[in-house]
Computed example of a mutant assay.
Amino acid sequence: MQHEAIDWDDAYANAPHIPSAEAYPPRWAAEAAAFRATARGQTGQSYGPHPRQSFDLFLPEAESSGLVVFVHGGYWMKFDRSMWSHLAAGAVARGWAVAMPSYRLAPEVAISSITADIRAAVEAIASRVPGGPLVLAGHSAGGHLVARMLCADAAPGAAADRIARVVPISPVSDLRPLLKTQMAGPLHLDAGSAAAESPVLMTPRPGVPVHVWVGGDERPVFLDQARWLAEAWTGAALTVDEGRHHFDLIEGLTRPDSPLTGALLDGL
């Protein structure tokens, strides 16, 4: 009996399997711009010399209860912080400061350099908002990057001691399957670098709760990637958000009372 070969590029492609996928990026951009127009805080704050090494910081009306850093996705190759500002709304409404960094993209740099960017961003942002706990959340490639912050080789300096929770949303936690895709070239991936950047192969910082969140209607490989991380990191929680796909899963962050915002902040 012959088994049909897996098309790995299609397996890791989200947009072709989401109805009206092309409508999401302009909607994100519009909602983000509308949020920035009324939000408190500062935009375009630098954490390094490259134009993409910058972040936006959104502040609540009163003194913040703590700091959330949200890292966007895009397979390490697309987007910037300006697309996602509205995702700060839920946490800001609950009294938290929220920062959103951009970072250098592949193919200009390899994933290891992007990991270093996020480490530098978290250090810089934490110094700007020195009080309260630090929560790291990220979507897709951003989920990979925030998970990396719990690994010893990427720990963000003194800010590592403030990390109270990490929420990887639809993360890519094992990069080795990407070697079978056409993305391997622009991502500068080979067997060594894929393993070196895979959180599932690392031991996380002890004592920091991790809650992996994934949509029930996501591509099977993303359900696998989420499960692999939850299984590899002892004590990590896993939530499968039924009825949600890779693009609409993050909408919960716009609402203070959503389960996803609760996964970031409840109990802190």
Rank of each mutant, 00 (worst) to 15 (best):
A230Q: 11
P177Q: 04
T239P: 12
D257F: 04
W213G: 00
K180C: 02
R255F: 06
V172I: 15
V214M: 04
Q182I: 00
L238F: 12
H246M: 02
G235F: 07
G243N: 10
S193N: 05
S173K: 05
S198T: 06
G185C: 01
P256Y: 03
L178V: 11
L187Q: 12
G215S: 10
A226T: 01
Q182A: 10
M202I: 01
P177V: 01
L175R: 13
A230H: 11
V210Y: 10
R205W: 10
E242N: 12
A226K: 08
H188T: 01
L179E: 08
G207P: 11
A184K: 15
P206H: 11
P220Y: 07
R255Y: 08
I250W: 08
V240P: 04
E197P: 02
K180F: 04
I250D: 05
L178M: 14
R176F: 03
T239A: 12
G235R: 09
A195R: 13
L179M: 06
A236G: 08
A226C: 01
E218M: 08
R255W: 03
L187F: 13
L201H: 06
R176P: 09
T254R: 15
V200C: 05
D248M: 10
L201I: 01
W233H: 06
E242M: 13
P259E: 12
D174M: 09
V240K: 01
F222S: 03
R255E: 11
P206W: 06
T261M: 08
H245M: 05
M183C: 02
D266F: 10
A184F: 10
P204E: 05
L264K: 08
G262L: 11
L223R: 11
L253I: 08
R219H: 01
V214G: 02
E231D: 15
V212K: 11
Q225E: 15
L223G: 13
G235K: 06
P177G: 02
P186W: 11
T239D: 15
R219K: 12
W213R: 08
R219S: 12
G262D: 13
G262Q: 11
T239I: 12
S198V: 03
V208N: 05
G185M: 09
A194H: 12
P259R: 09
P199A: 04
L178C: 05
D241P: 10
L179V: 07
A232P: 08
T254S: 13
G262S: 13
P199D: 00
P199C: 03
V208P: 12
L265R: 13
P256Q: 00
K180E: 14
L249E: 09
A184M: 07
E197Q: 14
V208C: 08
A263P: 13
T261H: 07
P220S: 02
E231H: 03
S173P: 10
A230D: 05
T234H: 15
K180I: 00
P220E: 01
P259T: 07
H245S: 07
H188W: 14
A230C: 09
A226G: 15
S198M: 05
T181K: 08
G192E: 14
